[in-house]
Amino acid sequence: MPEKKIRVLVAKPGLDGHDRGAKVIARALRDAGMEVIYTGLRQTPEMIAEAALQEDVDAVGLSILSGAHMALVPRVMQLLHDNGQDRVKVFLGGIIPDEDVPKLQSLGVAGIFGPGSSTQKIIEDIRNAVRQTA
């Protein structure tokens, strides 16, 4: 039996067009042996939740640099919950001010990675978080 692959959706919600970070992460997760579903720019929370459902992913990585995270992240979390996907771990990357971090964590965000985060740390955190639910 093939080993269980970790499947991760990497998405960029909102309107900023800076997808370099998301691509670097997608590549790093691929090199860590994960299957990364990359959906590209300007995804709505609805599109993200729908893709997460169809692809039956273990984790969702959101990259947000527009400052709209306090609007977008709660919506994604709510939609995942509505779809019966509380199991899915949500990670956040981009520009997230420190004062927002506790609020996002209380919503259930499993990890927040600002500029300068090491990809190794991100990979380990995703692996550990997914393993907990497996």
Binding site: A26, E35, I37
Partner: peptide, 22 residues
């Protein structure tokens, strides 16, 4: 394709299918 070296993959076909969402 899956990478023959790491077993990982980037699956990017959905990028072109955003109009089917919803």
């Amino acid at each position: 394709p899956t990478s023959p070296f790491t077993g990982g993959a980037v699956l990017g076909d959905r990028i072109r299918m955003r109009e089917l969402s919803g």
